[in-house]
C-alpha cells in the first residue's frame, strides 16, 4: 500500500478531525500571501518613482486579459479534475489534470512572450524601478505557476502507476488548493497592477503606443 507522502498520523483521527496536510497547505497559503504582499506593496510604492525608461504604458491589456482567461479556465479544469477523482473516474481526472497543466503552460508562454516584448522595447529588470518591481513580482508568480505545472504533471504520471486513486483524492485536492491560490494572486495582480496601474497613465498609453510604433519602425 503506497500513498503520496502519507504520514501515519494523517490516518489517525486528528484533534480537529482535519487532515494534517490540508491544514499545512492552508497555513502555507496564508504564509505565501505574506510573501506576495510586500512584493505588490513594493511595486505600488515605486509605481511613479522610475527615473527613466518605459513604465505602465508598456503593459498590453488586451493580451493580458486573454492570458487571465487562460489561467481562470485552468482553475475550472482543476476543480473538474478533482471532481473526477473524487468520483473515481480516472479518465476524467487525467484529462482535466492534463488540461490544467497545459493551460498553465500556455499562461507561462504568454508571460514569456510578454517579457520578451518588454526586453525588445528596452524594459528589463535593470532598466528602472518599474522593471525591477514588475518583473520580480510577475516573475515570482510565474515561478509559482511553474511549480504547479510540475506538480500537476507529477500527479498525472503517478496516476498511471496507481499512486493517485479515489481514496487519496486529498492529494489532488491539496495540489488544487495551491493552483487556485496562484490563480487568485493573478486576479489581484491583473486588477491592481495591470488595470488600475495602466489606467492611471491613459495619456501615456498613447504616447507609449507612438513610442512603440517608432521603435518598431
Amino acid at each position: 500500500m503506497q500513498y503520496l507522502a502519507r504520514s501515519p498520523e494523517a490516518e489517525h483521527a486528528t484533534t480537529t478531525g482535519l487532515n494534517n496536510r490540508k491544514l499545512l497547505m492552508w497555513a502555507f497559503l496564508g504564509s505565501d500571501a505574506m510573501f506576495f504582499g510586500p512584493l505588490i506593496a513594493t511595486h505600488l510604492i515605486y509605481r511613479t518613482e522610475s527615473l527613466q525608461g518605459p513604465i505602465e504604458e508598456i503593459l498590453n491589456i488586451p493580451v493580458t486579459t486573454i492570458s487571465t482567461f487562460v489561467l481562470l479556465m485552468s482553475s475550472l479544469a482543476m476543480v473538474l479534475a478533482l471532481a473526477g477523482i473524487q468520483q473515481g473516474k480516472m479518465g476524467t481526472f487525467r484529462f482535466w489534470t492534463a488540461m490544467t497543466a497545459l493551460l498553465g503552460m500556455v499562461f507561462i508562454g504568454f508571460q514569456m512572450v510578454e517579457f520578451t516584448e518588454f526586453a525588445k522595447h528596452g524594459l528589463t529588470p535593470r532598466t528602472n524601478l518599474f522593471g525591477s518591481t514588475f518583473l520580480t513580482l510577475t516573475g515570482f508568480h510565474g515561478a509559482h505557476v511553474t511549480v504547479g505545472i510540475i506538480w500537476l504533471w507529477s500527479l498525472f504520471f503517478a496516476s498511471f502507476r496507481g499512486k493517485v486513486k479515489q481514496e487519496n483524492s486529498l492529494d489532488v485536492e491539496i495540489a488544487g488548493l495551491y493552483w487556485h491560490f496562484v490563480d487568485i494572486v493573478w486576479i489581484v495582480i491583473f486588477g491592481v497592477i495591470y488595470l488600475v496601474g495602466a489606467f492611471g497613465v491613459e495619456d501615456r498609453v498613447l504616447e507609449g503606443a507612438h513610442a512603440l510604433a517608432g521603435l518598431g519602425g
Partner: peptide, 27 residues
C-alpha cells in the same frame, strides 16, 4: 515571508542589477 522578500530583493540588486535599493535609480 517578509524578510524573505527583503533579502531576495537585495540579492537581486547585488547579483542581477535590479534597482530596488538603488538610490540613483530613484529607490
Amino acid at each position: 515571508p517578509v524578510i524573505t522578500v527583503a533579502i531576495t530583493l537585495l540579492l537581486f540588486d547585488r547579483m542581477f542589477g535590479t534597482n530596488f535599493y538603488d538610490i540613483t535609480a530613484g529607490a
